[in-house]
C-alpha cells in the first residue's frame, strides 16, 4: 500500500500496461520528454524509450488518426488530448471514425485504443480550457466513456480501458491531479461499466462523477450531521457502459435521486440517467429527480465566478436539504 497522487497514478497505470504488453504505445503533445503539461506522464519516456512513448506535433487529428490506424492493425495505443476541450478539433475521429469502424465494416475491423483527456474545471483556465465534455462523448454509439475520481480507480480503469477491445475515452480531471489516495501494491485491474457505492445511505441517492465525487461525499457528511439526511453516494465512474443495475437498486432503496454534474445542464449525463430512472423506477420514487449541474454557460476564468458555476458541497447540501424537505425548488 502506498499513497499516490491521481497524477502519479496515471503514469503508474500506463507503465503497468506498457510493461504487460509490448503492443501498448503512448503518444501525445509534450508527453514524452517533458512528462506532460500536467506532469502526469513523468518517467514513462525514461522507462520505455522514444520508440514507445512519442512526442507528436500539435496535430490532434494526426494523433487520433494515427492511434486509430495503429489500433486497427494490431497495436494498443494510448493517445493524449492535452485539454479535453481540444477534442473539438479532432472530433471526427471520436464521432465518425473510431466508433463506426466495427459496425460499418461488419466486424472486420476494430479500434482498441484509449484517448486520455484533461477534463473539467476549477483551475481558473477560462472557457476553452475548463470544460467538462464527458457528455459530448457519452452520446456516441460505439464508444466507451470513463471518468475516474480517485488514484486507485485511475489505475484500475486505465488498465481495463487498455485491455478493452473498444475505443475508450478516458476523462482525467485536471483538478484531481494533486489529490492523494491509498493504492495497493502490484497489478491493479478494474472493470468498465461498474459504479461504486462510496457511502451507503438510506434516504437519498446522489450520483456523481470525477471532481463532483469528493464534493458529493462532503455534502453527504454535512447533510447527515446537520440535516439528518442519510445519503447514498455513488461514483458513476463509467458513463458507457452504464451500471444502471447499481443505480436502480439504490433508488429502489432510497426512493430519491439527485445527480451532481459538472457538465453544463443541457443534455448532461444525469439527464439520461434521470430518464432511465423515470422510465423504469418511477414507482420507486418518493419525490422528483433533481439534477445539480453547472448552469448552461461557458465557464468564466475568475475564481469567484467559476466557484459560483461549478456545483460544490454547500450548493449540493442546500439543494438536497430543501428538496428533501418538500420545497419545490
Amino acid at each position: 500500500m502506498a499513497e499516490l497522487t491521481y497524477r502519479d497514478a496515471v503514469a503508474r497505470a500506463i507503465a503497468q500496461e506498457m510493461e504487460r504488453d509490448e503492443n501498448v504505445v503512448f503518444l501525445g503533445e509534450d508527453v514524452a520528454k517533458a512528462g506532460g503539461v500536467f506532469k502526469s506522464t513523468v518517467g514513462l519516456y525514461e522507462k520505455f524509450g522514444p520508440r514507445r512513448v512519442r512526442d507528436t506535433p500539435i496535430s490532434e487529428q494526426a494523433i487520433l488518426g494515427a492511434a486509430m490506424g495503429a489500433a486497427m492493425t494490431g497495436l494498443r495505443p494510448i493517445a493524449e488530448i492535452m485539454f479535453a476541450d481540444f477534442v473539438a478539433v479532432c472530433f471526427d475521429y471520436i464521432a465518425n471514425e473510431f466508433p463506426k469502424l466495427r459496425y460499418m465494416t461488419n466486424g472486420q475491423l476494430g479500434c482498441p485504443l484509449v484517448v486520455r483527456t484533461g477534463n473539467g474545471g476549477g483551475a481558473r483556465f477560462g472557457a476553452q480550457h475548463s470544460q467538462s465534455i464527458e457528455n459530448w462523448t457519452m452520446m456516441i454509439p460505439g464508444l466507451k466513456v470513463v471518468a475516474p475520481s480517485s488514484p486507485v480507480d485511475v489505475i484500475g480503469l486505465m488498465a481495463a480501458a487498455v485491455r478493452d477491445d473498444n475505443p475508450v475515452i478516458f476523462h482525467e480531471h485536471k483538478s484531481l491531479y494533486a489529490v492523494k489516495g491509498e493504492v495497493p501494491d502490484g497489478e491493479i485491474i478494474d472493470t468498465l461499466g461498474t459504479a461504486k457505492i462510496l457511502r451507503p445511505g438510506k434516504d437519498a441517492t446522489i450520483l456523481a462523477l470525477a471532481l463532483m465525487v469528493p464534493r458529493a461525499l462532503a455534502a453527504a457528511e454535512t447533510l447527515a450531521a446537520e440535516h439528518g439526511i442519510d445519503c447514498e453516494v455513488i461514483d458513476v465512474r463509467s458513463l458507457v457502459p452504464l451500471d444502471t443495475a447499481t443505480i436502480l437498486a439504490s433508488v429502489a432503496k432510497t426512493g430519491r435521486l439527485f445527480t451532481v454534474e459538472e457538465n453544463p445542464r443541457l443534455c448532461g449525463w444525469g439527464a439520461e440517467i434521470a430518464s432511465i430512472v423515470a422510465d423504469e423506477a418511477f414507482w420507486d420514487l418518493d419525490g422528483p429527480i433533481v439534477r445539480i449541474t453547472t448552469p448552461h454557460i461557458p465557464l468564466p476564468a475568475a475564481d469567484h465566478l467559476e466557484d459560483l458555476a461549478l456545483p460544490n458541497a454547500p450548493r449540493i447540501v442546500e439543494k438536497i436539504s430543501r428538496v428533501m424537505n418538500g420545497s419545490k425548488r
Binding site: L64, M72, D92, Q108, L109
Partner: peptide, 28 residues
C-alpha cells in the same frame, strides 16, 4: 472494406484516412 485483401476501409469524411494510414504505417 475487405481486410483479407488488405482493403482497410473506405472513408467518407474528407481527409480522415490520411492520419489513419499513418497509424497503420507506424504499426508496421
Amino acid at each position: 472494406t475487405s481486410v483479407e485483401h488488405g482493403v482497410m476501409g473506405s472513408y467518407a469524411i474528407i481527409g480522415a484516412h490520411l492520419p489513419i494510414a499513418c497509424g497503420s504505417a507506424w504499426r508496421a
